[in-house]
């Protein structure tokens, strides 16, 4: 039954080993990025979740079949398309985050220019009423 599951998914042993290795390396890279403070924990959790998904599928390929059954996917392709759409959504979310950050970045740069001008005016003794 379990072997049949693996066949249905179309995973051979080499595929599973490959997937396991990729997931483990990915997990290691993510943890290392967090350790070096290059990646926030908030985003790291997401990627660790994805790597964990890869690990589970590598060890139990029938998980894909089980997952497809639970969500009523008739064809496994639907499963892959769903994953792809999820990644697409993720990229969209990130570009929204980047847009917001660059807007804040612009506002801060402008504020720095305005405040440092005001500071140098104050140092020169020109005090202005500035709301």
């Amino acid at each position: 039954m379990e072997e049949r599951g693996a066949e249905v998914v179309g995973f051979y042993l080499s595929h599973r080993i490959g997937l396991l290795c990729i997931s483990l390396v990915f997990m290691g890279v993510v943890l290392e990025l967090v350790r070096r403070s290059h990646l926030k924990e908030r985003y790291a959790l997401l990627w660790l979740g994805a790597a964990l998904g890869g690990l589970i599928v590598g060890v139990f390929p029938q998980a894909v079949v089980w997952f497809s059954n639970v969500f009523g996917f008739q064809y496994l392709t639907v499963f892959y398309i769903t994953s792809f759409l999820f990644l697409l959504l993720l990229v969209l979310v990130f570009t929204v985050v980047i847009s917001k950050l660059s807007e804040r970045n612009r506002d801060l740069a402008q504020e720095v220019a305005l405040l440092s001008h005001r500071l140098s005016r104050l140092e020169e003794g020109h005090v202005r009423d500035d709301p």
Partner: peptide, 26 residues
């Protein structure tokens, strides 16, 4: 008067800085 942006914002960000200055200084 000189307003120095810490890095290049492009023409829009630069102009807006000037308008913010105009607004705050009445």
């Amino acid at each position: 008067e000189l307003l120095s942006l810490p890095f290049n914002l492009g023409i829009g960000g630069g102009m807006q800085t000037g308008y913010k200055y105009a607004l705050r200084n009445g």
